[in-house]
Design a protein around this nucleic acid. Structure first.
Lengths: 191, 191
DNA sequence: TGCAGCATGTAACCTGTTACATGATTAG
DNA sequence: CTAATCATGTAACAGGTTACATGCTGCA
């Protein structure tokens, strides 16, 4: 059935948040404004159409809370199909393209994994993420060494920022991988 | 006159690249594929419409190189107005919103500054960027300390990645600021 | 009284994605 | 000869931005 509705980061973020806790459109907008998820749009012109698409595709359903009011408050929660679609989206492979152009989405997917996918799969995802990020970091660093000296100052510096940014993410991934392994009962030392 | 055409990162990147060196649409696409600018789209469906908009707004002009062929190669270069618009876009203020949601664009703007805006302005831009990035890094780190312990493992880890990423960028900005000050002969006055 | 927050939505616009389309030239 | 590369474009679709629109509730 494909459910291609989770194409946008915003839809994925909404479905993930609703899986943690049902909320209204306004509640989601508050979350997007008040937490680290502020990188997403909290504008009504983005959130409400996204909610409608998710509902039309059967991934979420809403309960109207004050049916008497002119603008009743509607609280949304994922359907079984929605939960399946979310898990499916989280499980997709990690590609180099993702690492180069959609790192935000990879981290968004990772952030929702606890409780929804097994620790083994989480580990596999993060391993791939670490590998691809390290690979791309090395590619960028090579490019910096090769063409950096010929670039104008600010151009070279901007490239260096890219190198440093991927390096930081690669380190974070390795560190987190270590923490994740420690909390896994089956692998490594028996706790 | 406002020239709002540089709304998209891709348009800005194209205008910047053409200012460094005139190129055809295909040439730009090659650059987007082969260099660190691969974070931008190299697809013809993005590049050619962007070139047309820039030309329609008088920011670039094209010289057809092989007028006999069915698909003649057209090399574009910025007009005087285009150069002005680019400088104007680079000079815009750095806001917290930019740092939170449009860091890519800030770095893109910075990367084109050498030769187009004075070193004093470049210094001012980078100073603001460093300040705002540090401020947001501290906000994120606070959020991590406050709400981190209550989050599920992968959610907390994703937030930590955000913290580390902004920290790396803040460090890069400070370091680059030092290098920039060193190459400025006259304005040795720090602080 | 007036303002901020609650709460939902629409419409025009812009731009990127994906897929399709055409045809020349060049290297193996 | 045939595959890759050069070279330019269009069309349908999706989704975000900005601005507009409505009206209630609680508080100072």
């Amino acid at each position: 059935m494909k459910t291609a509705t989770l194409g946008s980061d915003l839809s994925l973020a909404i479905l993930g948040l609703l899986t943690i806790r049902p909320a209204s459109g306004y509640g989601l907008r508050k979350t997007f404004r008040a937490t680290a998820m502020r990188a997403f749009s909290a504008s009504p012109g983005a959130v409400y159409p996204a909610l409608r698409r998710l509902r039309e595709d059967g991934l979420i359903e809403g309960k109207v809370e004050r049916p008497h009011a002119l603008r009743p408050r509607e609280v949304f929660a994922p359907t079984r199909q929605g939960r399946r679609a979310l898990v499916g989206a989280l499980a997709e492979p990690v590609t180099r393209e993702d690492v180069v152009r959609r790192m935000d989405r990879l981290l968004l997917r990772f952030s929702f994994m606890t409780g929804l996918v097994g620790e083994a799969e989480t580990l596999a995802f993060l391993t791939r993420l670490a590998e691809e990020t390290e690979k791309y970091y090395r590619d960028l660093a090579d490019e910096f060494r090769r063409s950096g000296p010929g670039l104008p100052f600010t151009g070279r510096a901007a490239l260096e920022q890219g190198v440093e940014s991927y390096r930081a993410t690669a380190r974070w991934a390795r560190k987190t991988l270590g923490e994740l392994r420690k909390r896994m009962p089956s692998k490594g030392a028996v706790r």
